[in-house]
Simulated assay, not measured.
Amino acid sequence: MFGDFQLEDIAKKRIVVAMSGGVDSSVVAALAAKSGAEVIGVTLQLYDHGAAVGRTGSCCAGQDIRDARAVADRLGIAHYVFDYESQFRDSVIADFADEYAAGRTPIPCVRCNQGVKFTDLFGIARDLGADCLATGHYVRRVMGADGPELHRAIDPARDQSYFLFATTDDQLAYLRFPLGGMEKAAVRAIATEYGLGVAAKPDSQDICFVPDGDYAKIVRKLRPEAAEPGEIVDLEGQVLGQHKGLIHFTVGQRRGIEIGGSPEPLYVVRLDPAERRLIVGPRRALAVRAAMLDDCNWIGPRGDGPVTAKVRSLAKPVPARIEGDAVVFEQPEYGVAPGQAAVLYRGDRVLGGGWIRETVAAEALAA
């Protein structure tokens, strides 16, 4: 049941489990305890105690920490809580606000995995003498000819590989993902079997530090200039109206553009924070042929052959090719936003990816 650990003589091994207080990480802890290894649960407190008390629907909040501790007690394993509020605020929340202020669309979950979870938590696990770090992410770690590979989860509805594209080879060698080959219903069944109080706990929704979904409020508080009003213009620069702050918009968005008299629906094509301008146009103006990437990360050798690219967490991977620091789509792709990630796959294997710096319009290449 816990073969994902791939450790010899597992009874003599030590496993650190990242416990967020949800059902997924709690089941990982239960399976680890069943394996016979010494198990230590670790929870990172990402909010101050006062703000976290009673908070639900997120992760690493007050009630979640209590739930993680209760699960550890139920399983008879050690459990430690580490205060990482300041690191999370500086590396994730501040970056989130900066990205929106710069007219980009951030993915804080990737930044959190890159920093607090897969850097700081790694350090904690190694300091505790652990042989591996196990998490509740829905991805698979598969041993290939050149070492461990990152693959999509069996359940496409739960797959989280998009958020883990920045995982390094060294990190992947240390990580274990026991839930990647399971469906959610099976995970909840295991939680019920072990009598875990979180068996029916709802999944966390939206961004963990924006439980009410009002991300603009967070950005406005940290970067008030991003909430300043400005002009809505068409592709030729003609003023069509006024907006109430660029923080309310992202590339590909249609809702909230309150302009009457247009012969066809208008979408956000670009954001110009320097001039506080929102550039809008018809859907065809969203067609993108290529995306230029920054800070690319590759997991193992890329090899040759066709690839697919995913440019949003909920998008389907589409045929593409890699050309230097760019991903070129076989067919025009829509809603490609700077600040998001382009993640590359070969079959179910995650090759890696990078952050979208800018896009090349399909019309520009056609010209």
Rank of each mutant, 00 (worst) to 15 (best):
F2S: 08
D9T: 13
I10E: 13
K13Q: 14
I15R: 14
A18K: 02
G36T: 14
L44T: 01
A52R: 08
G54S: 06
I65S: 02
R66T: 01
L75E: 07
I77D: 07
D90E: 15
V92M: 02
F96W: 07
A97N: 01
D98E: 10
V110N: 01
G129Q: 08
L133C: 03
A134W: 07
H151A: 07
R152S: 12
A157Y: 03
F163S: 07
F163V: 05
Y174P: 02
L175G: 00
A189D: 12
T192E: 15
P202T: 09
D203A: 06
P211G: 12
K217P: 00
R220M: 12
G241Q: 03
Q242E: 13
H243A: 04
H248K: 13
E258H: 02
S262P: 05
P263R: 12
E264G: 08
E264N: 07
P265M: 04
R270L: 04
D294N: 09
N297W: 07
I299D: 00
I299A: 08
G300W: 08
R302M: 06
T308Q: 14
K310N: 11
K316N: 09
A326Q: 11
E333Q: 12
R346M: 13
D348P: 08
R349C: 06
R349V: 11
W355S: 07
A361R: 15
A362I: 05
